[in-house]
Design a binder for these strands. Structure first.
Length: 289
DNA sequence: GCTAGACCATG
DNA sequence: CATGGTCTAGC
């Protein structure tokens, strides 16, 4: 379940393996992997990979075509997507980019929620760089509806706070809304709310300014801590993150700890459903109201 | 504008 | 049969 920290680890790993390489051949082995794309992957042949950028959980490769035009190749890992270099014989390889230097980048995805999509650039709304890893104020069309994430230097925290407080739904749902704030998935949403001491069912529009800034701080810390951990456990042989393994090494305080004692107060962690998602919280440290 | 369903493979 | 991220369709 790659969320922002995992996707950023993948981006950093990809830099070593694909930067300034030229695509000799791009092929797909299942139609589904390019379902979000208007054109087939093999149209990328001849392009050179100039950058690997990220916003939230979305990645894109900036590709310079032989004509000099730049266009993005968008990649979303879904729940189980991985990139690997020169992997052969593994199951669930849905696509691969072969480079002129003889190396190959393979896209593997067991649950097939992920995808690759050659796309077009559109200008960013604020004319600032589109995300981490790029200076271009241009964003792939498929990513243009995704909000900036908490680790984006061009995030406007005041505007974000205003948006959050305008929502008439639970704060947990708002945290998961990628059009409001990106990069946070079910696991880090629970962790951020626990850290901030905020009940997941609290209406977003009932939060005080102080609570919103505390939540920003908590969520940012949770993402950064995880990014540090992911960076160290990252295996550079594979440009990938094993979707599940990383979480076992991380110290989770709420997610998946149903019935276990809260690490702060000892009360059992409760599990409820919010917006169809399993939600874990401490009934004492995260009081309603 | 917000919610519920669809899409998948695995345990 | 629940899970999880995102898009789509519905109210």
């Amino acid at each position: 379940m790659p969320e922002l920290p995992e996707v950023e680890s993948v981006r950093l790993g990809l830099l070593d393996h694909v930067l300034s390489k030229e695509i000799a051949k791009a092929e797909t082995f299942s139609e589904r992997v390019t379902r979000r794309s208007a054109r087939p992957l093999n149209t990328l042949a001849g392009g050179t990979l100039k950058a690997v950028a990220r916003r939230g959980k979305f990645l894109w490769f900036d590709i310079a075509e032989p004509t000099g035009n730049h266009s993005p190749l968008v990649a979303h890992l879904g729940m189980s997507g991985q990139f690997r270099v020169n992997c052969s014989g593994l199951a669930h390889i849905h696509a691969s980019l072969a480079f002129t230097d003889g190396t190959r980048l393979d896209f593997i995805d067991q649950r097939t929620f992920g995808y690759l999509a050659p796309d077009v650039y559109v200008p960013t709304l604020d004319n600032a760089a589109a995300g981490v890893g790029t200076e271009m104020p241009m964003i792939p069309h498929l990513v243009s509806h995704i909000a900036r994430d908490l680790l984006d230097p061009h995030l406007d925290p005041v505007a974000l706070a205003v948006t959050i407080v305008s929502k008439h739904t639970s704060i947990k749902k708002v945290l998961l809304d990628q059009a409001v704030i990106s990069g946070i998935g079910n696991i880090y949403a629970d962790e951020a709310l626990f850290d901030a001491g905020i009940h997941p069912l609290l209406p977003a529009n009932s939060l005080k300014g102080l609570e919103v800034s505390r939540l920003f701080m908590s969520a940012t810390n949770v993402l950064e801590r995880s990014l540090d951990a992911g960076g160290t456990s990252f295996d550079s042989l594979y440009v990938s993150v094993n979707g599940e393994s990383g979480y076992f090494e991380r110290s989770l305080n709420a997610y998946g700890r149903t019935g276990l004692p809260c690490r702060t107060c000892g009360q059992p962690i409760e599990q409820i459903t919010v917006g169809g998602r399993s939600t874990h919280f401490c009934p004492h440290c995260q009081r309603r109201q």
